[in-house]
Amino acid sequence: MLRKRLIGTILVKDNVAVQSYGFRRYTPIGSPVICAEYLDAWGADEIALLDISASKSRSGPNLEMISKVAAKSRVPLMVGGGISTMKEVHDTVEAGADKIAMNTAFIRQPELLREASENYGAQCIIASLDAIRTSDGYSLYRDDEGRDIVTAAKLAEELGAGEILLNSVDQDGSLEGYALDLISKVNRAVNVPLIALGGAGAPLHFEEILNEPNVAAAAGNYFQHFEHSIAVLKHHLGTKGFPIRQKSGLEYMNVSHTLDGRLKRTPEQLLLTQMYEPLHQ
């Protein structure tokens, strides 16, 4: 049985890692390099580095940042943002990317996806699709043609995408769960693996999405809220029977979790907290 994947997402705006809320508000976190170092240490199966300002500024991929992040990532690194030519695809791979994610390029110049897939292999090329809810389903976000998300996903597969990163604009930053109807609809329509992104806020949300066949779970805000979040989540999913790679060197066999995925405090820890709380009042 294939193991389920958890993918840590680093969203970058103006060279700073940020948390995103509905594609409208952004809270700075800090260095993308440090984020990658922690995600790798906590046990992410893959890391996605997505630069949301590179395409808008037409500055191209930040190769220096990509190289530094790649140096901290011992797992496959997906990179997206600002890639609009085959030379930029090549330079991004040379900088350390294992996979290339195309979002704006897929909308504006879909043949680049086909050319990249033919040159580097489908396993290297990801179609990054942002979906927004409409009155009758989901459409591709910021697409002048107003294409239905299923139509866009089928085209991405036809052009040679080896995977589809499917992000829900409506769920982004909500911590209320993935858009299960969206993921299920697209998953039934294509044969390539999906990566679900947008809305994760508790272990239950990961259980729900990983029950979908051929789907990996990506998260940004959730994995950056507290330490060891990926390793703790992996232990939880393991107890639920999901085939998943555990983080070696970290032991959680005798602990329990809160509903949002944090470790529950022991009575001794609670006592220490009560002892020290007056000092901060």
Rank of each mutant, 00 (worst) to 15 (best):
D51T: 09
D51S: 07
D51Q: 08
I52K: 04
I52M: 06
I52N: 03
I52L: 02
S53I: 12
S53F: 11
S55G: 04
K56S: 15
K56V: 15
K56G: 09
S57N: 15
R58D: 05
R58M: 12
S59N: 09
S59W: 06
S59E: 08
S59T: 08
G60E: 02
P61V: 00
N62T: 01
E64M: 10
E64A: 11
I66Y: 10
I66Q: 12
S67T: 08
S67M: 07
S67N: 09
S67I: 05
K68D: 14
K68S: 13
K68A: 15
A70P: 01
A70Q: 06
A70F: 03
K72M: 15
S73G: 13
S73L: 13
R74A: 14
R74F: 15
P76N: 08
P76S: 14
L77H: 03
L77S: 07
M78N: 14
M78C: 15
V79K: 04
V79G: 06
G80N: 04
G82M: 06
G82R: 01
I83N: 02
I83Q: 07
I83H: 04
I83G: 01
M86L: 09
V89N: 04
T92N: 03
V93G: 09
E94N: 12
A95I: 00
A95S: 09
A97P: 05
D98Y: 05
D98P: 07
K99N: 10
K99P: 08
I100T: 05
I100M: 02
A101E: 10
M102I: 12
M102E: 06
N103G: 02
A105W: 05
A105C: 10
A105I: 11
I107T: 10
I107D: 03
I107W: 01
I107F: 05
R108Q: 12
R108N: 13
R108M: 12
Q109R: 15
Q109V: 15
Q109L: 14
Q109T: 11
P110M: 00
L112P: 00
L113W: 02
R114Y: 05
A116N: 02
A116Y: 00
S117Q: 01
S117E: 00
E118Q: 15
Y120K: 03
Y120R: 06
Y120G: 06
G121L: 03
A122R: 14
A122N: 13
A122D: 07
A122Q: 14
Q123R: 14
Q123E: 14
C124Q: 04
I125S: 00
I125P: 02
I126K: 01
I126W: 02
A127P: 05
A127F: 01
A127R: 00
S128Q: 10
L129V: 07
D130S: 07
D130G: 07
A131V: 12
A131P: 05
A131N: 10
I132F: 13
I132Y: 11
I132K: 14
I132E: 13
I132V: 15
T134N: 09
D136W: 07
G137I: 08
G137H: 02
S139G: 13
S139N: 12
Y141W: 11
Y141S: 11
R142G: 01
D143A: 07
E145A: 14
G146K: 08
G146C: 07
R147G: 03
R147H: 02
R147T: 02
R147L: 01
I149S: 00
T151V: 13
T151K: 06
A152D: 00
A153P: 09
